[in-house]
């Protein structure tokens, strides 16, 4: 992965993804998982979703992806209700990278990345030169060129994450949704993946656990707490010692050096 070479594929225009009044309930739980959440990820920005476990980050991501239906609530792409788009067009616009995507099927790396071309191909049509080019570009972006014939079973956890990222990039989406993509990655690859996302020029919404990574790579943050939006806005406005204390229950130093924000967690509030 070499940051700087990443660029949105030809003709891909980033779009804004937003949600209004998003509410998601599950049977057997009185409190909704998402409670009237409003959300905007501006076009071409990296928006981080942070919050403690159970705050609704993944549910919000799945709601934006269309795999969980909000009741009530609506997700919009550039103002257009997402649900009104045909299924394949949705898949050409929004790509999703799930947390811990695993498979029993021993696909080759090239096969996994080629799955990203399904929404671009006819149902019976074989992959064409355009598909091959998009796959090659995606593999290059995540630094896995040359691994095409390796089998899923032989990949490390980090390599699997990067292959999934390549699959999502091969979809040539305008919006990229990622659920904790840095899980299983070693420190170097965490930074490489996030700086890659930051340079794609795509609209990126990413669930992150690591506050230091969120501070470093996200243009904007949405802080979820018990199913509600606690704060949303530009990273340095949102990520304050106050937010960290009330939402995460930690004492922290937040300092700004030139253009970057640094977060240092000192201990839990009770210490």
């Amino acid at each position: 992965m070499s940051p700087g070479t990443a660029a949105p594929a030809r003709g891909v225009r980033p779009v804004e993804i937003s949600g209004q009044g998003l509410t998601v309930r599950v049977r057997g739980r009185t409190a909704p998982i998402l409670d009237d959440v409003g959300f905007t990820a501006p076009a071409g920005c990296v928006t981080g979703l942070i919050g403690p476990n159970g705050s609704g980050k993944s549910t919000l991501l799945h709601t934006l992806a269309g795999s969980t239906s909000p009741q009530p609530g609506v997700v919009r792409l550039d103002g257009r209700p997402f649900g009104e788009l045909p299924r394949r067009e949705r898949a050409r616009t929004v790509a999703v990278m799930e947390q811990n995507s695993d498979s029993d099927t021993d696909l080759a790396v090239a096969d996994v990345v080629a799955l990203g071309r399904l929404p671009h191909r006819g149902r019976m049509a074989p992959a064409g030169p355009q598909d091959a080019a998009a796959c090659a570009r995606a593999l290059d972006l995540v630094g896995l060129t040359g691994t095409e014939q390796r089998r899923w079973r032989t990949l490390s956890g980090g390599e699997r994450q990067r292959v999934q990222a390549a699959r999502a990039l091969a979809q040539e989406p305008a919006v990229l949704l990622l659920d904790e993509p840095t899980n299983h990655l070693d420190v170097q690859h965490q930074h490489e993946l996030l700086s890659l996302l930051a340079t794609t020029g795509l609209t990126v919404v990413v669930v992150l656990h690591d506050l230091a990574l969120a501070a470093r790579y996200c243009d904007r943050l949405v802080v979820l707490h018990e199913g509600r939006t606690h704060a949303a806005g530009r990273t340095h406005e949102v990520l304050t010692a106050d937010t960290l204390r009330t939402v995460f229950g930690v004492r922290a130093d937040v300092s700004r050096h030139a253009d970057t924000l640094r977060v240092e967690v000192l201990g839990s509030v009770g210490d």
Binding site: S67, R87, R90, A95, D102, L115, G116, L118
Partner: peptide
């Protein structure tokens, strides 16, 4: 090709445009 997309679960298949 839809069956291929099930390799990583129904949610990923749906996000790839599979009905």
């Amino acid at each position: 090709s839809d069956l291929d997309a099930f390799a990583f679960g129904a949610r990923t298949a749906a996000s790839l445009g599979v009905p």
